[in-house]
Amino acid sequence: MVDDTAGGRHEDVSGGPLLGHERALLNLAYRLLGSLADAQDAVQEAYTRWYALAAEQRNAIDSPGAWLNTVVSRVCLDLLGSARVRREGYVGEWLPEPLPDSVQWRSGGAEMAADPADRITLDESVDMALLVILDSLTPAERVAFLLHDVFRYPFTEIAEIVGRTPAACRQLASSARRRIKDARPVTASIGERAAVVRSFKRAWEAKDIGALVAILDPSATAVADGGGRVRASVIPIEGGDRIAEFLVGLATRAGVLTLLERTVNGQPGLVALDHGTTAAVYAFDVADHRIQRLWVIRNPEKLGSWR
């Protein structure tokens, strides 16, 4: 469940506070969209619609927070549909926008700090692996699953948002749940992830192909998102040995690597710096003490929160 009580900046023009739902709305919108910028736009659109109502219409709404939640969900559903069309012209692979935390993690587990910009709650529902799987679902599946399983909406309310029957929404959520389980049957603890990612960092800094191959699962996949704005592989790299060779080649070309241990979407990850500027954010999926998937976000438009 996401906290719906955090203070917000918006205030009803009639004089009463608008309950400060902005943080909760942003938590909802980011999970639905996988993009902080789009989530902020969706929340702003909801407030714009609220203030466009006549005073008597606003006064007739018993719960402004519930009304805003519904509007944000519908806006996100529309954006998810249009995003699929927009991404047809996207260069290379599209990945969710990574969320930062302000502290270094430790090998025994991630040391959690305040939310990024005090607005996004970091928990398992923003794990990069889950967001990538969610992006493969239909918009209706994604909305039904998140609203029910993460935010605990009843299917009667989800039906009004999605425009389907409660029974159909139940099926959508069940289908999404099944696909998520099939795609990611096993998850590792934060402590295990931290230990594996730290070993990966040391091996990469040492340009030790053998050590990297030992850390990477033989069937590991590396996906990069440059958005056509910076150099990045436009197709996934398959196989632990190929990924290790690619990484060592990259380190050789780049010269001195500056890798920082940082929490990425609530999990141990890495940040690469180029002359003090964030050049890439690395997120990992770990199982059986090996890296199964590596995601590299290089698109500068998705790294604004890391500068």
Rank of each mutant, 00 (worst) to 15 (best):
R307I: 02
L247N: 09
P154S: 06
A6H: 09
V186R: 15
A113F: 01
W67S: 04
G228K: 03
R253M: 07
G89W: 07
S174F: 10
N27K: 08
Q292E: 15
V234D: 13
L270S: 04
G226H: 00
C76P: 11
V143L: 11
S107R: 04
G108C: 01
A110H: 00
S175W: 01
A232R: 03
P185G: 12
G266L: 07
R178V: 05
P300K: 02
R290T: 14
P139Y: 02
N59E: 14
V264N: 14
L147A: 03
A173V: 06
G89C: 06
R198G: 00
V71H: 13
G239D: 13
D12W: 07
R198I: 08
K302E: 11
S107H: 01
W295M: 15
G276E: 11
S305K: 00
A272W: 04
I297S: 08
G15V: 05
I235W: 08
H21K: 12
Q171I: 04
D78E: 15
A214T: 09
A46E: 02
L33K: 05
M128V: 12
I235V: 14
D38H: 00
S175P: 01
L260V: 10
T252G: 11
R262S: 10
I120M: 08
G20S: 07
M112G: 01
A54P: 02
P218E: 06
R298N: 04
F246T: 04
R84P: 03
S82R: 15
W67F: 09
R178N: 04
L216F: 03
L273Y: 10
S14D: 15
E45G: 13
L122T: 01
W105C: 03
A159C: 14
D285T: 06
G266S: 13
V85N: 13
D182Q: 06
E97M: 02
L147F: 07
P139V: 03
A168Q: 13
E160C: 03
L28F: 09
R293D: 07
Q171P: 00
E157F: 01
V91E: 11
Y90C: 04
D4P: 02
S189L: 10
A272C: 12
L273N: 03
S136F: 00
T277W: 07
E192Y: 00
N27I: 10
I158V: 14
E124A: 10
L247R: 05
W94F: 11
W67A: 09
R307K: 03
D208W: 06
G227T: 09
K207R: 15
L25E: 10
P166N: 06
A159D: 10
A214Q: 11
D135R: 15
R262H: 05
R179Y: 02
P98I: 04
S35N: 03
D123F: 12
P98T: 05
A114D: 04
A251P: 06
D274Y: 04
L19K: 12
I243E: 11
R290Q: 15
L80P: 11
A168Y: 06
L53D: 08
D149G: 00
G269A: 08
F145V: 10
A195S: 14
Q104T: 15
W50E: 10
L146Y: 07
L257P: 13
P17T: 09
E157N: 14
W50V: 01
R170Y: 07
V296A: 03
T165M: 09
A195K: 13
G227F: 02
